[in-house]
Structures are given as structure tokens and as C-alpha cells.
Amino acid sequence: MHCEPFEYEKPVSLREFESLYAARADDARILAGGTDLMVLIKEKLLAPRLLIDISDLHELRGISWDPRQGLTIMAGTKIAEIERSTLVKEHAPALAYAAANLGSNQVRWMATMAGNICHASPAAETPPVLLAHDCELIIGRQGGERTLPISRFFLSYRKTALESGEYVKAFRLPPLPARAAVAYRFKGLRRAMEIDMLNIGAYLELCEDGQTVSDVRLAMGSVGPTTYRAAVTEKKLKGMPIGEDFFAAACGGVVQEATPIDDVRASAEYRNRVIGVLTRRALEECLEIIGARRSAA
């Protein structure tokens, strides 16, 4: 494949990587799995001068659990590792499910979650779940780091809040309260290897009575320039009792807040209609999970 020539560096330590990236941030691209990046380069949509391969930085790999901080997933962790991790399956099963539905097996063993969010496609699989979890991002740069809620990460189509020289270092998913659950639903034309026509991550938390909504987050994909939360609807739903009115308000709300377009995968009309269906199914699944956990306890 003919593409513009580029330099290639493979740092062996995080420090080396950070200093290299700080010096060349403007004409460099980070190569983690390459499953999106290389496609863009081959299609001549990107022509970076330098690729910095971080796939061997062990500091950026791994999944850990801390009862107070929650689940920490380092940025270079492969999607397939997230899909298979017992920690993820236990504490963020919807994320394991979304990971399992990203691309093909081969792609999942190459791709990373940081790559999935930095590519910032509105159809990406993991952002709805990360938004539903209200995940915190740890953003690294030479000589420091900062944290950023993922709800402030996606700025517009394929644009993120990363500043020059910054990179995504880790994801932190806070522990789920009792009586809370996250679910992920998607719709593609076929059942695997799809770019979704629609997807949604839902978070539902009930009050102690088990009947009243204490908190809800609805993160929609493929209905706008980025994955984003239906903030107005979320506010409306808080304090509502679980029941048909709640579901109707949720489904009606997301349709109001969705701003889909017609594209090769689906029409705006279809998306508007089915985003409500997926929302209901995701919220029902959250309820089921909460109910099952309760009867188990």
C-alpha cells in the first residue's frame, strides 16, 4: 500500500514515550493497536510524520480493582483483554459485553480502548458504556497528569478534549452503588463485525425503596456528531417511580434529544424511532440486574 513515508519509534519506557511525544506532538501520532489509525493512513486521510508505537509499554497495560477507587483500566489494554477480564465481567459487565462486540476477534486483540475513544467516532462501542459509568479519564503528559470526566471528553465529530502533548493514560470506573446497574444495547444490520446503526449505554440507580429512580444516565451513539448523554431527559427521570410513565418519558426523551442524520447505515427516521426501543430495553435490563442482585442478596 502506497502512503506518505513516516518515521517510526518504539519507546521502551513511559518516560521515553512522554518526552518523545512532548517534543513531536504536532506531527506525531500514537500507534497503539493501529486498527483505526492505519486505515486512515492507508486511505490518505492522515499523513503523520512520526508514529510512536506504545504497544510494548507495560506501564500502560493492565486492569485492577480497588474497592474505593473502582476499576482501573490502563489505556494500552487490549479490547480482547477487557472482554475476557474477570474483574471487568464482575464490576462492569456491560463494558465486557460492548468490548466483545467491537470488530472481529483479530481486531480486538490489536485495538485498545484508548484508541476507541480517541478516534472519537460517534458509532464507537465503548463510549456509551464509559459515559453510563461516568468514567474518569486520567490524561497524561510529560511531567504530569490530570483527570477529566468522560462526559467532557468528546467535543465534536472526531474531536476530543486532549491538548497538544496529552494522551489518555487510564480509565477509572467508580464502584457501582448498591441498587445500580449499567446495560449496553446496540443495533447493527448483522450480528457481528458491525459499525452500529445505533447504540446506547444506560445507567440506572434506584433509591432504597427499590421503586424510585435515584439517578439515571443515558449515553447515545450514532445519533449525533459524538456519543453524548441525554442530559435533559436524565434530569426529568430522576425521582420518578419505576413504571410505564418512566419508560415512556425515557424513550420519548431520548428521541427528543437525538439528532441523527441519514447515512449509508440507516436513515435519521429509523434511528429516531429505534433509539427509544433500545433505551427501554437497556433500562429494563438494568432493572433485571438490580432485581437479580437483590434476590441473590
Binding site: 448483522r190 450480528r191 457481528a192 459499525i195
Partner: peptide
Amino acid sequence: LLNPSLHDYKIPTAAD
């Protein structure tokens, strides 16, 4: 052609 790739031209997968 608007979808001359196996990314956009969808054939059934094993899951289907």
C-alpha cells in the same frame, strides 16, 4: 460505488 469494501458491504457473519 459507495460501499466497495467488506466494511460497508455486509455479508452474513458466523454470528448470523
